[in-house]
């Protein structure tokens, strides 16, 4: 369980380079819930882009850098199911013992909130029709299913408009969406339509890749639907809520 050490922030490259605000939203939410965090600025990327494209050697090089950066930290929190899955599920195969040690230390953001028993302390308000897009790696690699929904349900004013059935891929898939952009775009269109049909106004997700891809599709279709990271959603919901700051 949470140790005396500050929680170490594992900021995915996409958030570092494109969406820093998602990272700072997570930091603010964690602060409001009473967590002390630290950030190691030598961190860059977990190596997943190369690994998923089949370039193991380069993935290994970057993964070793990751381990060198984080080796002294007991717990890492990451606002991406996909990057968490890379470290937890694939580092052991890629790097053996060093990979196994690192694998046990990384937690996806919602997973961490549950693990540290912080969900009950979340208080806020966000009056809107909300659907949750669970990233495939969060759902199928990490087995995260109910927790993000429980977190969203903590917020006042939320009306859940969840499409029925299993989570469906948005079509991002990293390099896949570049190499096969026509397929990836059509998949985003299909996924977005499910949220529209369910009546959602805001889609909350736990992976910056999915969010980028779905936002792009919204732009292409001229939709005003908001796609938010779970951390951004909570940050906004908790911002002016006294209950959120008292912790």
């Amino acid at each position: 369980m949470p140790s005396d050490q500050p929680l170490s922030l594992f900021i995915p490259c996409l958030i570092d380079q494109v969406y820093p605000e998602m990272g700072f939203s997570m930091v603010r939410v964690l602060h409001r819930l009473g967590c002390e965090v630290r950030y190691r600025d030598e961190q860059t990327c977990c190596g997943q882009p190369a690994f998923n494209a089949g370039h193991q050697r380069e993935a290994k090089t970057v993964a070793r850098h990751f381990i060198a950066v984080f080796q002294d930290d007991e717990e890492l929190v990451c606002p991406s199911g996909s990057c968490t899955a890379m470290v937890r599920n694939f580092y052991p195969g890629l790097l053996g013992d060093a990979g196994r040690k690192q694998a046990g230390a990384v937690f996806e953001f919602s997973e961490y909130l549950a693990r540290a028993d912080l969900i009950g302390k979340i208080k806020g308000s966000f009056p809107a029709k909300i659907a949750f897009h669970n990233s495939c790696h969060s759902y199928r690699e990490l087995g995260i299913a109910e927790v993000p929904m429980q977190i969203i349900a903590q917020i006042d004013g939320v009306e859940l408009c969840q499409p029925a059935g299993e989570p469906v891929c948005c079509g991002f898939g990293g390099v896949f969406s570049v190499k096969f952009s026509a397929i990836a775009g059509a998949m985003a269109d299909t996924r977005l339509q499910m949220f529209l049909d369910a009546g959602a106004e805001v889609v909350v997700s736990n992976d910056p890749g999915c969010i980028m891809h779905l936002r792009q599709e919204c732009t292409d279709r001229g939709l005003s639907m908001r796609i938010l990271h779970l951390a951004e959603f909570l940050d906004e919901a908790m911002a002016d809520h006294a209950g959120g700051r008292q912790v």
């Binding site: 495939c136 790696h137 199928r140 690699e141 299993e166 469906v168 891929c169 898939g173 896949f176 969406s177």
Partner: peptide
């Protein structure tokens, strides 16, 4: 064909 997948894992499931 192996690259033409988002690796969503629905197949494995």
């Amino acid at each position: 064909l192996s690259s033409a997948s988002s690796l969503c894992g629905a197949c494995t499931q």
